[in-house]
Each structure stands twice: as structure tokens, then as C-alpha cells.
Simulated assay, not measured.
Amino acid sequence: MKKIGITGQNGFVGSHLYNTLGLQPEEYERIDFKKEYFEQPNQLDEFVKKCDVIVHLAAMNRHPDPEVIYFQNIELVKQLVASLKRTGSKAHLLFSSSSQEERDNLYGKSKKEGRSLLADWAKENGGTFTGMVIPNVFGPFGKPNYNSFIATFCHQLTHGENPVVDVDGEVKLIYVGELVQEIINQIQTAENKEHYPVPFTISMKVSEVLAKLEHYKKLYFDHGEIPELVTNFDYQLFNTFRCYFDIASHYPVKFKQNIDARGAFVEVIRLGIGGQCSYSTTVPGITRGNHFHTRKIERFAVIKGKALIQLRKIDTDEVLDFYLDGDEPAYVDMPVWYTHNVKNIGDEELLTIFWINEPYNPEDADTYFENV
């Protein structure tokens, strides 16, 4: 079992890597890191001594003064190198540099020089170093106006703002889940690679990305319809977009009931893709679920009885409660990386319809059990 520590553990890429490693506890032990360790040499040394692998992701991306970015990022590298030397570490060190290395800006300069400093440490002290040069990363939970233009667009479209394309350039992109898998692959191979350009998975103009997101807003955010999703990038971008809703206020979404003398007709879901539709009956007091998905799109629709649907993002403590009643049929969609359940809180049998975008495959279930 490899003991892995991640500086920047709570950041965008760091949290995805930390959570993904947690899905394989038999292979990886996660050594927790706190940003305060950079100000506490003894704590930093204790952290370094515990690690077989250190993934250095901590960095500053945005600041009004570019020189602050430069000096901050170099200082973090120097502090890490000093701790590696003090402890005599032989750890495998992975560093996240950026494709901006070759651009004329201080952020790119800080990344290139930081990579060089860490490579020198590995050569001089018998460590293993992987210097990853990473393209533009996007995915769920990135900070708008900080991590990615995609995060900014998603936030704006779901919060009543109108995105504007300043420069419509061609952008090389990688989904955060793909990047995490690339990092894990490099951890497993453990080879010295001073300069390793991580391959991008798609190249697209900024305006083309925005057009897709605007389409998702019109169909899904405004009307609850699942759009046609053809490529892996479509699924990745759509799952990213879904994570920028104000979930607590958006759900539950009430269905339109078409009532006549025969009773009521309700359209549960309209979609441009296939999937699996099923239903469950649940006796009073029983809870179903308590699991999460990392890629699947799922809808719970209560059409009879009273239910409590709960969601919690797996690396947080906040639980979102949604009370649904079959007298006013409604649905809640499950964002990726949110563990969720449904409980019958009424006195009669609960009837719930479930739709998910891919049929259940026990060999690749993308279903991880964790109590809400």
C-alpha cells in the first residue's frame, strides 16, 4: 500500500484526487495535509516523513499582482524542498506544472522554475520526480473566475448572468477525472520524468464550449430535459454544468400534472439519450440508497407517498433535505460525487420512479456506498 500526501488537498484537482484515491483503500493510504503546514516546518516534516508519494498541487493561480503569484509559488516549492532535505526523504514527488510554462507571464514562470527546483532535488538526493505539464483542466466544483473559464460560464448561466467571450481562442482541455487517472498512472509507474506533457483530450474554441453550455441551460436548467450527449466530452461538460446549480433552492422541481376525469398524467423525464427507467415501492420508515456516482446522471421522482430525499457532497458535512409528496409530484436529480438516499416518511407505501442514463452493469457499476 502506497502512502500518498497531496499538498493543495482541498483545492480543485486536489480534492478530486483525494476522493478518488479514497475509492481504493486497499491500494492507497491518504496522508492528510493542511495548508498551515507550510508555515509550520515541524508539521511539514512530519507530513513528508509519512509519505511514499507526494503530489504537489498547492499553488496560487490568481492575484491582482502577478509578482505575488510568482513569489508565493516559488516559496511553496522551496519550503517543500527544504523539508524533503531535512527528512532525507526518497519519496516519489509529482508536480503539477502548467501549459502556461511557455507563455510570457509570471504564473507560467513560477511553474517552470518550480519544476526545475524539484527536479534538481530528485537528482541530488535520490528521489523520483514526475514533472507534469498540464493543459486546461475543467470539471465539477472548480471555482468560477479562478480555476477555469468553464467554471465561470457554468456559474454565470445558472445564476442569471450572461457569459461573454473575451478571446475566442482554441483551448486544449482535459477533464479533471481524466487528469486524476493520469496522476494515478504516474504514481503506479513511478518513473523519473522531469518534463512530462500530459496529453489533452479535446481541443475546442471557447465559443463552441459556451454554445454547448447555453444549450444545456435552455433544455436542462430551464426545462429539466436531458440533452443529447454523444461524446465523452459531452457527458463531462454536462456533469460539470450540473454542479453549479444552487441545489438547495433548485430542487425539488414540481412536475406538470395533466388532470382530467380519468385521473392525472405526468411526464417524468424528456431526454435526448437512453438509459434505464425503474421504480421502487418502499414501506414506511425504510431508507434506500446511501451511495454516490462519479459519472452517472440520475433522477428520483416521487409520485405516491411522502419521501425525504437527502444529498451530501462526499467531502463535506452539509446535508440537503428535500421533502416530496406524491400529491404534488416532483423530482430531484443527483449531482456526481453527492451521496444520496430516499426515505419513506409517510404512513403509506412510497412509490418512486428512477431514471439513470446507463443500464446497471455490476462489473462497472459506478456506485459507491456511503451514508448520507
Rank of each mutant, 00 (worst) to 15 (best):
G305I: 00
D317P: 02
F221Q: 09
G289P: 04
A307N: 05
A248H: 10
G305V: 00
K306W: 02
L320P: 03
K217L: 08
A330W: 01
V268I: 15
G274S: 08
I269P: 05
N258S: 07
E328D: 15
R299S: 13
K313P: 05
C243T: 15
I269T: 12
Y220S: 05
A211H: 14
A264I: 04
Q236P: 10
E208W: 08
T316L: 09
F265A: 07
H250A: 11
G289F: 01
Q257D: 07
T316G: 07
N258Q: 09
Q236S: 12
E267W: 00
L311E: 08
R288A: 04
P227K: 05
F241V: 05
K313A: 07
L210Q: 08
Y331F: 15
R270S: 13
Y279R: 12
E267F: 01
R262H: 06
C243G: 15
G272W: 01
D327K: 14
T282N: 00
D260I: 00
K304D: 10
F241W: 06
K313L: 11
Y216H: 06
D222N: 10
D317E: 14
I226V: 15
Y331C: 11
L324C: 13
R312F: 04
N239H: 11
S207Y: 11
E225L: 11
K306P: 03
G272K: 00
R270W: 03
P252C: 03
F265D: 04
H250Y: 15
S278E: 15
D317W: 02
V332P: 02
E208L: 12
K217P: 08
L320Y: 09
E328Q: 14
V266W: 01
L324K: 07
Q257G: 07
F221K: 11
A307L: 03
P284N: 01
V332Q: 06
E318Y: 07
C277P: 06
S280H: 11
Q276R: 13
K254T: 13
E225Q: 14
L219F: 11
L324M: 14
V268W: 06
A307R: 01
V283H: 06
D222M: 04
Y323E: 11
R295S: 15
K306Y: 07
T287G: 00
A307G: 04
Y279I: 08
Q276V: 10
S249C: 09
D321I: 02
A301T: 15
Y251K: 03
I259Q: 08
F300E: 08
E328N: 14
S249F: 10
R288C: 04
S278D: 14
S249K: 15
Y216E: 10
K306Q: 12
K217C: 04
G263V: 01
I259C: 10
F241N: 04
T287E: 07
T287D: 03
L237K: 04
E214W: 09
Q276W: 13
V332W: 06
Y251M: 05
I303W: 09
C277Y: 11
G224V: 05
K212Y: 13
N258C: 04
I226P: 05
V319R: 05
K212L: 15
T282D: 00
Y235V: 08
T231A: 05
R288F: 03
N239K: 13
D315V: 06
F221A: 15
K212V: 10
